[in-house]
Write a protein that binds this DNA or RNA. Structure first.
Lengths: 112, 112
DNA sequence: TCCATGGTTCTATAATAGTAGAAACGAAGC
DNA sequence: GCTTCGTTTCTACTATTATAGAACCATGGA
């Protein structure tokens, strides 16, 4: 992940409405949700939601799938994990990770 | 970490200049850097840098220490790790993490 | 106390982002 | 073909953010 990709992802999530949309879709899981249902769930005007969906999609945080007249959005976990990895990599970049990062909580490991 | 804290941290990092400042300080490590040195390293006007340092500090991404006339800023790893944990927690929140998160890379574990 | 230096706040300006009504678009069914 | 429904684009307006010159505040040294 490049600086500009990280910036896009961060900017994507750094907004109340978009974070809410993203979290909703994360909860919903891989099947995703059509735009109208998202708008209703969060009480957003269609145009407003559409604006944010575009932002999130451009940041590659969402992926899109058309099913009939419905357009389903779902969270792109890959990008979010890449962002987390990018930040973590930045944090520790090779040297004295124990000293520098010790105060923080340990990152979670995927349940296996 | 609450939604508003995550939002503050994300907004803090979601800006080119601030991300550059933060990464510079992350590299520099626990001793930090005085404001003037940061401004010089990144070619920023003092007032501009000061604005961003305040933003980052308010988001608790930086901590401050005064030494004589110099004011040292250093990255607050704790907050960054909390943000990562928040996003990860969001990602997996309890259910079907293997399916949902599998495509992404595995989060790094602290070197022990 | 006076000066030089390191930083911040004040102020104004320019640029960007968020919101949402209204119009337009495209797919599905008649 | 026409109509309906889900969604996006157009448009305009408002609010927020980024930038930096200039004035200001603190600290340390002569």
């Amino acid at each position: 992940m490049e600086v500009k990709d990280a910036l896009a992802a961060l900017a994507g999530l750094a907004q109340e409405t978009r974070l809410a949309v993203f979290r909703l879709l994360v909860e919903r899981g891989p099947e995703g949700m059509p735009a109208g249902a998202i708008a209703e769930a969060l009480g957003l005007a269609n145009a407003t939601l559409s604006f944010h969906l575009k932002e999130l999609t451009h940041a590659d945080l969402l992926s899109v799938r058309q099913a009939g007249r419905f357009i389903y959005y779902r969270a792109n976990y890959r990008t979010m994990n890449a962002l987390v990895a990018y930040l973590t990599e930045n944090c520790c970049r090779g040297n004295t990770c124990d000293i520098a990062c010790a105060p923080g909580p340990e990152p979670r490991r995927k349940a296996s």
